[in-house]
């Protein structure tokens, strides 16, 4: 057995730095899509439910079904299954761009559910305050529902960001770049323990930092 040398420690930052930036960029772009699409979708799911402002069974059931679809496949399978869409949009099936589509699909479905849960926690009686004083539907949603659910929504975003970091690492399998790609290509395929260790430390630190900041914001928002 030939002992394999890991990347020298002084070379690690040069590899890891760009990878962390890649991961951050991917997660940031995906999260924008997730909040902008998943949030309204979650509001729609809740408000068309029997407990919502405008119950509508048909809309509720169909959107709920679509959101479940995005969450029912393991991410690796979803990523593979969605390749035709990815190719159609970006004309490529590997790299950073290719990861955006499956991550967004999974993230949107996840955040729709998180949003639904967050607004469900707002007591129905508070919505009635708006209805009884003649507020419009949008005023009730933005002024009461979203405002009261804000701590829950921030907790949801925190959870979702962490899930997206995890997915970005899985997306490393299709060469998306980022910390996950580095860990797979160097740490796993080349038995480069130094890189593997560095990736693990960075990922743990990243996740801890995000969870900590998220909790702080939630606490500041809760009255």
């Amino acid at each position: 057995m030939i002992p394999l040398l890991g990347t020298a420690w002084h070379d690690v930052p040069g590899l890891l730095g760009p990878a962390v930036w890649e991961t951050a960029r991917t997660v940031l772009i995906v999260m924008s899509v997730v909040v902008l699409v998943g949030g309204p979708l979650g509001l729609l799911i809740f408000n068309t439910s029997p407990l919502g402002l405008t119950p509508n069974r048909a809309v509720h059931v169909s959107i709920s079904w679509i959101a479940n679809l995005g969450r029912s496949l393991p991410f690796l399978v979803l990523m593979a299954a969605i390749i035709p869409v990815t190719r159609w949009v970006f004309h490529t099936t590997i790299g950073f761009k290719a990861a955006i589509i499956p991550m967004s699909v999974a993230g949107v479905a996840f955040f729709a559910r998180l949003t639904e849960n967050a607004v469900r926690e707002v007591p129905r009686d508070l919505l009635d305050v708006g209805v009884a004083s003649g507020s419009s539907r949008w005023q009730i949603i933005s002024g009461i529902q979203l405002r009261e659910a804000l701590p829950g929504l921030v907790a949801g975003v925190t959870l979702n960001v962490i899930a997206m970091i995890e997915y970005s690492a899985i997306a490393g399998a299709i060469g998306s770049g980022g910390v996950g790609y580095l860990a797979v290509n160097y740490g796993y395929r080349r038995f480069d323990n130094n890189i593997m260790l560095a990736c693990i430390v960075v990922l743990i630190a990243l996740v801890q930092l995000i969870q900590f900041s998220g909790d702080r914001v939630v606490r500041a928002l809760t009255r």
Binding site: D125, L126, D128, V129, A132, S133, G134, R147, E148, R223
Partner: peptide, 15 residues
Amino acid sequence: REIGTVFQSANLLRR
């Protein structure tokens, strides 16, 4: 708006 309502346990927005 013609009818104001005072709810049981006030129903104030917490935030």
